[in-house]
Design a protein around this nucleic acid. Structure first.
Lengths: 114, 114
DNA sequence: CCATCATATTCCCATAACGGCATGCGTCAA
DNA sequence: TTGACGCATGCCGTTATGGGAATATGATGG
């Protein structure tokens, strides 16, 4: 009860999308809803595996389920990705290298390389 | 050599930013370069801890080091965040709920709730 | 060369993550 | 009711993680 090894993966969208297969699932769901088995086959993973990833995605609110008979159609709920996008937004201005500090820094690197 | 428990955290930016403290570090570095000890104190974490997180960030290319005497100034290299941003870009159109499927889906949910 | 400061690294622990496999559970058809 | 189907869970094993404490490594000043 001492060392918290790491935050639960189910804690937030950041963790949820850290797993490649979950990103694949989300990408696939942009095309519409999918029943678990089909989704699993489409992505080449076992059904339990798909169910587990879908559970994580469901718990962080990135995915919704619609029950229809014995099938469960999973659909995307991309709103959960907004926090990630907003956080990233705080860094966009640094990509272009237009920020003074970064520019100066890059210059430093170049000089050191000579 | 059998079950690969999970991808290494050091594998990519997605994993690197899944950890809240690393996001804090990146956010702090937007203000400029920081020596490890100062950064650690500023964020209220031990020095070894800061070093470890910085190492991960360095390995995925989100951070650069500039050595100056016995200090090491860490600086942001936000370019590594582009892949994340680009991946997210593929979902922006779904946030507004303007996508037919999502709308229809939400309607379904509402009806079921009655 | 030695003491010191700034960092990085190692060792160890507790925990969480993923995967496979087997199984539980609900739904539907016969 | 029974069996098949679709999916969720449970359990187990392996691996990675984050944290703390101690220690190693590097550079600097005397």
């Amino acid at each position: 009860m001492a060392a918290v090894a790491r935050a639960a993966t189910t804690s937030d969208a950041f963790n949820a999308i850290a797993e490649p297969q979950r990103r694949d699932i989300l990408a696939l769901l942009r095309a519409g809803e999918w029943p678990v088995t089909d989704l699993a086959r489409e992505l080449g993973m076992s059904q339990p595996r798909a169910s587990k990833h879908l559970r994580v995605l469901r718990e962080v609110g990135l995915v919704r389920v619609r029950e229809a008979g014995k099938q469960r159609w999973y659909g995307l709920d991309a709103r959960g990705l907004r926090p990630v996008h907003e956080w990233l937004g705080g860094f966009e201005r640094f990509w272009a290298g237009s920020f003074d500090r970064l520019d100066a820094y890059v210059q430093d690197l170049k000089q050191e390389a000579e």
